[in-house]
Amino acid sequence: MLSKPLLKASVKLNYIVFIIIVAVLMMYLPIIISMYNPETQDSLNEMLKALPPEMVAAMGFGEIGGGLLSFIGSYFYGFLILLLPMIYAIVVANRSIASHVDKGSMAYLLSTPNTRLKIARTQAFFLIVTVTLLIAIVTMIGIALSSVLYPGELDVSGFLLLNAGVLLLYYALTGIGFFASCFFNDTKNSLAVGAGLPVAFLVLQMISNTGKETEFLRYFTIYTLFSPKNIINGENFIISFLALAVIAIVAFTSSLYAFHKRDLPL
């Protein structure tokens, strides 16, 4: 099913990016959680009011409800979680297939008794597992920090649901990046789509947050399918979850198909 040596090589090639992204996330998460204080939350809201409301909204910091979950939900899951793992997904998805085709090292991989499907499956597996690991680390550290700093304050099941949503979002984003990686011959085009699309989605998301006139843009970005507020409040998030899952499945299967069928310029 999978090629163990290739998996090992992918780990070796990508572990540094993984560590950097985890490190940056682990720098922000404790700061944000430690900022939570039920008594001073009003004053934090006061402070946010001093900033231009459009900017606050663009970062997804608006409408903070009560409780630790909502606090983390808007400050960490409103923006940072959308940006940092995205960088990982973009870099690693591009490296998984397109950069091997672009550089020509794919010729060596395919001169071994491994089918294209097996190579692509292995790389997809690596992407999915590491992205899952990334979100799992954030989830576990988040729960651990909260229970140390504010015992009993965090709605753990709500937090898990929030992270399940993030995970599905990342399966979909990684799927798009992987498809670009499998479909294009060179890194340039693979990145143009694999990175350009998620970044464009993020920008659209930020603009659509800022006001009524731009709100329609939310229909053009995948990030609309991940709404921390809806998940926390338990409002019709199931459809969004399903949509993300479908995008992910379609993206990954069509990636495998595209790579299996196409001509390779090696």
Partner: peptide, 9 residues
């Protein structure tokens, strides 16, 4: 292969 390129690193 005619064009030699291996794995980085």
């Amino acid at each position: 292969p005619g064009e030699i390129s291996f794995f980085d690193g």
